[in-house]
Write a protein that binds this DNA or RNA. Structure first.
Length: 256
DNA sequence: ATGGTAGTCTAACTA
């Protein structure tokens, strides 16, 4: 079972990219972020023709998440329980007995801003949610655009991306480690320990060509699935296409 | 520190 996460930065613009990538990569489940589409505009018919059912939670202009799967998507939930959030950033469903939580974590802009405080509160609410989901569904995958680079291997320059920088700050990384401590494992790091395996590159300054990126798109597997993760990676191919998203898909494969 | 690019929607916000 191939499970992937891709921030498409506007599904309206990137639908052809998604269709191409689905046919080439053939994932079983995909979590999308930044669809930027209201639900009535979601291209579920076009995706059905590509062989994927979809559930989605969107809004105009910003944010928006979706889950696509070849098999049925059951027990769908949108938004974080008991957390009043005007921004569409979370969706969950069960596919083939595996619970999937898809997150578009708040960017946070800069330390000391209201958006940064919102990011930390949002992550705290997600922590409580995952805690509950793990009790109900031991076979859990949490994936998405985390807007946190877990450690120094995941940045091009640790002196720049330091404890006081957005996406790598002490509080953000601590919040991420608290999620892992619930019983989750970074799928890519179960199998690969090398540095500079990035999933996002700024559109500016030829960052992709120079591999000046960050690894902020993650696929996490629960304790119960840890030994089932037999492959993981980042598919940089679509980042090299014309008019690409600034993110590449991160993925893992479960044995069954 | 700023600005560089992209998407949404034509002003300014978000990333």
């Amino acid at each position: 079972m191939k499970i992937a996460s891709w921030n498409v930065n506007s599904l309206n613009v990137r639908l052809p990219h998604l269709q191409q990538w689905l046919s080439e990569f053939a994932p079983d489940v995909v979590g999308l972020q930044e669809t930027k589409l209201e639900d009535h505009r979601f291209p579920d018919d076009a995706l059905l023709e590509a062989g994927y059912r979809s559930v989605f939670h969107g809004q105009k202009t910003y944010n928006g998440v979706a889950l696509l799967a070849r098999q049925a998507l059951e027990n769908v939930r949108t938004g974080i329980p008991n957390f009043d959030d005007p921004q569409a950033r979370a969706i969950a469903a069960t596919v083939n007995g595996v619970r999937i939580i898809n997150l578009y974590v708040v960017n946070g802009q800069d330390l000391g801003t209201d958006k940064y405080d919102y990011k930390l509160r949002w992550l705290e609410a997600v922590h409580g949610w995952i805690d509950e989901e793990l009790k109900a569904h031991p076979k859990l995958v949490v994936l998405g655009d985390f807007n946190i680079a877990p450690d120094d291997r995941d940045v091009p320059d640790a002196a720049v991306w330091n404890d006081d920088h957005i996406l790598t700050s002490t509080a953000e990384r601590a919040a991420y480690r608290r999620l892992l401590a619930l019983g989750l494992h970074d799928g890519l790091r179960l199998l690969h320990d090398e540095a500079a395996l990035f999933s996002w590159w700024d559109y500016r300054q030829a960052a992709f060509r120079r591999n000046l990126g960050l690894r902020i798109d993650l696929t996490l597997a629960s304790d119960a699935l840890k030994s089932e993760v037999i492959e993981a990676g980042i598919d940089t191919t679509p980042r090299g296409w014309e008019r690409p998203s600034d993110h590449a898909p991160a993925w893992l494969r479960l044995r069954s």
